[in-house]
Amino acid sequence: MSRRRLIPFCALTLAGTVSACGAKDTTDLAEPAIAPEYMGIETEALDDDLVNVFVALKGGQGPKDIERYAECAVSRYTLDRDYGFARHLRTNVTEEGGLWRGDAVYTISPTLPRGLMTIDAEVVAEACAQNGIPMV
């Protein structure tokens, strides 16, 4: 009788061991991101201190790279107008056929603006240059 109880227990233990061996940890198998291919920047002054930035890229990490690209573009725009700072207002991101597009709006100013999403144009422009992200 004890033998009958032992067999199912062994079978369950063996089944658990086999299924555990077959499990894969997929965290190390994440697909590497494709390096972004920067497709261009357009800027449109909406007012003296308000700018709309349009950027496009292929590959990369989508919205994250679009936001970085737009920050690089607005940093250059800000410095070209002898201002030192920008403040992010909004970014809309779309993707179609592998092409990511960003439409971002920023205020620019000579002094640090109020708010949480501020950009020091010199610092950001330097980081963009070091990381190979175009600004014009």
Score class of each variant (00 low, 15 high):
S2P: 09
R4E: 14
I7G: 02
P8W: 10
P8M: 06
F9Q: 11
G16R: 01
S19E: 08
A20H: 04
C21W: 14
C21Q: 10
G22I: 08
K24P: 02
T27A: 11
D28F: 12
A30C: 04
E31I: 13
A33N: 06
E37Q: 14
Y38I: 07
Y38G: 10
M39H: 01
A45F: 00
L46I: 08
D48W: 04
V55I: 06
L57D: 03
L57K: 03
K58F: 01
G60D: 04
K64W: 05
D65E: 12
Y69K: 11
A73N: 07
R76P: 01
Y77L: 09
L79I: 11
D80M: 11
D82I: 00
G84Y: 00
R87P: 01
H88S: 10
L89R: 09
R90K: 12
T91S: 12
T91N: 09
T91R: 02
N92T: 08
N92V: 12
N92A: 13
E95Y: 04
G98N: 06
G98P: 08
R101H: 08
S109H: 06
S109V: 04
P110Y: 00
L112N: 06
P113W: 00
P113M: 03
L116Q: 10
I119P: 02
I119S: 03
D120M: 04
A121N: 04
A121T: 03
V124E: 12
E126I: 00
A127P: 01
A129T: 07
Q130M: 13
I133C: 08
P134F: 02
